[in-house]
Computed example of a mutant assay.
Amino acid sequence: MTQEINLKSEITATQTGQRLDQAVAELFPDYSRTRIKEWILAGNVFIDGIAITRPREKVLESQIVEVNATIEEETQAEAQQIDLDIVYEDDHIIVINKQAGLVVHPGAGNSDGTLMNALLHHCPEIEHVPRAGIVHRLDKDTTGLMVVAKTVEAQTHLVAALQAREITREYEAIVIGTMTAGGTVDEPIGRHATKRTHMAVTHSGRPAVTHYRVAEKFRAHTRLRLRLETGRTHQIRVHMAYIGHVLVGDPVYGGRPKPPKAASEAFIETLKNFKRQALHAVRLELAHPYTCEVMSWLAPVPDDMVQLTKALRKDTEEHPEDML
């Protein structure tokens, strides 16, 4: 299916001499520069009724610009009834508290049963939005808050806000090792040189910045609160591993159980049975793409991480000498 786009506006005096792609982006800010350039090259943008296919074409005051284009349905996934924990919804956005085990996009080994399949069932019109409105991702076994756009315009605004670092995303995590203070990891992330499903800190990667602070100390573990400036694949997991504090339960980056000395059997079993990375997107804040109102949501830490934290506290209380 396709969505018809029909736009019309007039070049202003201040836009005289601008490039066509720049002027059209200013006239119709709900659409990205990349999409507008594609429309120009495809002959979908008209000046005074004449199709212009050169993005660098200069425009003049009072010229009439029209866009007549279609947005192809990019979603190939099928709608499936899958339970979603919807924290907030209106005509423009959906905020979801994603459960562990839910993959965001269909892909190799996960052709269905994903968040995208669930969104298409919950909101069928979202099929007209690229990637079914998904703006950012959480890993399969990471829980917590995600925002989804219900319209192309909302998605364009939210993607731009992410790129401008105007959306706040905070996480709770439990890492291996005792950390004494918070800090910032500012290291680029890219594909691992030999393990293609892994990410790594690499000079050829894209900029990535993670801020973290200590929320609670245990004998051999630390509970952290983290805030992302960027949103690279596996960013928190890679950055914490890079500084020597792998997330508890992380199957990819080495979060194997490491119980402290003299730990009880019950505590050792709790660590062994925690089978996912201990990471939860706890807070999301953004300016609404339509009203511009600043909105904020909190998602309670899931029960498995709550129980892990209780076990860590109990172990620490049983060995107070190790905290001196």
Score class of each variant (00 low, 15 high):
1 M>T: 13
5 I>T: 07
16 T>K: 14
20 L>W: 02
25 A>H: 11
26 E>K: 13
30 D>H: 11
31 Y>C: 01
39 W>M: 05
39 W>R: 02
46 F>L: 15
48 D>S: 12
48 D>I: 08
52 I>F: 04
58 K>R: 15
72 E>H: 10
73 E>V: 08
77 A>F: 01
80 Q>R: 10
80 Q>T: 04
88 Y>H: 14
89 E>L: 07
93 I>Q: 02
110 N>I: 04
117 N>K: 04
119 L>S: 01
124 P>A: 11
126 I>N: 00
130 P>E: 10
132 A>G: 15
138 L>D: 01
138 L>Y: 00
141 D>N: 15
146 M>W: 06
155 Q>D: 07
165 R>I: 04
168 T>P: 04
173 A>T: 03
176 I>S: 04
176 I>M: 08
178 T>K: 15
179 M>R: 01
189 I>N: 00
196 R>C: 08
198 H>W: 07
203 H>W: 12
211 H>L: 08
232 R>I: 07
243 I>E: 09
247 L>H: 05
247 L>S: 04
250 D>Q: 06
252 V>Y: 06
254 G>D: 12
254 G>R: 11
256 R>W: 11
269 E>T: 15
269 E>P: 04
272 K>Y: 12
280 H>L: 05
281 A>C: 13
284 L>S: 01
287 A>W: 03
290 Y>I: 07
303 D>T: 15
304 D>L: 06
305 M>G: 04
311 A>Q: 02
316 T>M: 09
316 T>I: 04
